[in-house]
Nucleic acid binder design. Structure first.
Lengths: 219, 219
DNA sequence: GTATTGGTGGATACACCGTACGGTAGCGGG
DNA sequence: CCCGCTACCGTACGGTGTATCCACCAATAC
């Protein structure tokens, strides 16, 4: 009644709900109720739930695209990668769809364009085949990293971070598994390795990959 | 009646159905019907659907683990990576859960152990922090690559591979977008770049990343 | 002024989902 | 022989996305 509803408003409240209760807790009925409207009203603005998801995704990409162009190709790539990671940490559901559907919204395309343009200016990227591989590798790394990190954060939150709660929840099974001695290296990683800073690790690996793929290869 | 049902049998038919109709098309009711049983019978073997998913995932990891140990660390890593990719191409739903939940089944742990053990023998991986980063980078790349490839394959299948069908389905929107001139680099990639062999690209990028992260860095 | 039309918003309905629950039938022990 | 227990199973509930129909109301035609 006050404001007549719109795709933007629907996407915004959908994002709010998804942030709060996850993608599984998101339903058209709840969105409609939040907007004080019957469920079927949403279908005047959106074809189906999948299109609504695309809408939400592109809103997030809009925020990522805001980082804009930096001075050098490398700074641009780093900025986009970190912005993507930040966005996924703010909207964990974003990591659930990352890489799972084609991102064709205008802002997603803008981010893709900025990334590709930056990489095409990198040394070692000589022709379009190089560029395609570089874009693929970079995006693959970002998608995988962000997914892993969000998943880790979720399990950490659900089990509790401290040693005791961890031992109590996954422990009965996982510690038994590790005690078998069949997974010594994994055991060492689990026991010794929880203290690494996530952003630092992300940045470190990102740097390594950029270095690796922009190095001149023997033709 | 004939064979009294078991976790393995349930997982097997669940995998068959998921292969055929995707993860969205998978339901406990359909699995039960396929087994000639009431839906609630499954709950005698499985706590809930999520545990069934974990079961399915670990069956796939069992196949990946079969590649076993190779002579050198590098061959081992390559074999595991390719086996993971192959498994995801055989079971596309696998890519949907890849990285989206902790993989704690025995076979998943075995694969993780083999990967970590191999990487710990790589040059340039000096302490456990290096190892943790290396494992993270590698897994991130694999997860992202496989997801991307499966997604591409799905959209290609749904739109049709040939130029005409592609132009007809995504064309009206995507070609219009690209015609705006705002995404010149993406346009070049889309128009010129479809012919790269997927496995080759995967292998190429994988090699690049392994080279990058096993190179000695200045302390 | 009245009848008709068009379009808009809502309620209802359907098919399906995961899963909680209550009953029943078969079987071992007293 | 009867009782109690256990293992199984059908039914039912609350939820989902979405198609369809219906009631209302404004504006037009006569």
């Amino acid at each position: 009644m006050p404001v007549p509803l719109s795709r933007e408003k629907i996407a915004a409240t959908a994002i709010r709900l998804a942030d709060a209760h996850g993608l599984d807790g998101l339903s058209l009925r709840k969105i409609a109720k939040e907007l004080g409207v019957g469920p079927m009203r949403l279908y005047d603005y959106v074809i189906n739930k999948s299109e609504l998801l695309d809408l939400m995704v592109d809103v997030v990409y809009a925020r990522i695209a805001e980082v804009g162009q930096r001075s050098g190709w490398r700074d641009t790539v780093l900025a986009i990668a970190h912005a993507t990671r930040d966005a996924a940490l703010d909207h964990e559901w974003f990591s659930d769809v990352l890489g799972g559907r084609p991102h064709l919204g205008p802002h997603a395309l803008a981010v893709g364009e900025a990334t590709a343009a930056a990489l095409s200016a990198a040394p070692g990227v000589r022709d379009i085949d190089d560029l395609q591989r570089a874009v693929g590798a970079l995006n693959a790394f970002i998608i995988g990293s962000v997914r892993r990190e969000v998943t880790e954060r979720r399990t950490a939150r659900s089990t509790g971070t401290d040693e005791a709660a961890f031992q109590a929840s996954l422990g009965p099974y996982l510690t038994r598994m590790l005690k078998t001695g069949r997974y010594p290296t994994v055991a060492r990683l689990v026991i010794d390795g929880a203290h690494l800073n996530a952003e630092e690790t992300f940045n470190h690996n990102l740097t390594t990959i950029l270095d690796g793929m922009t190095r001149q290869r023997p033709t």
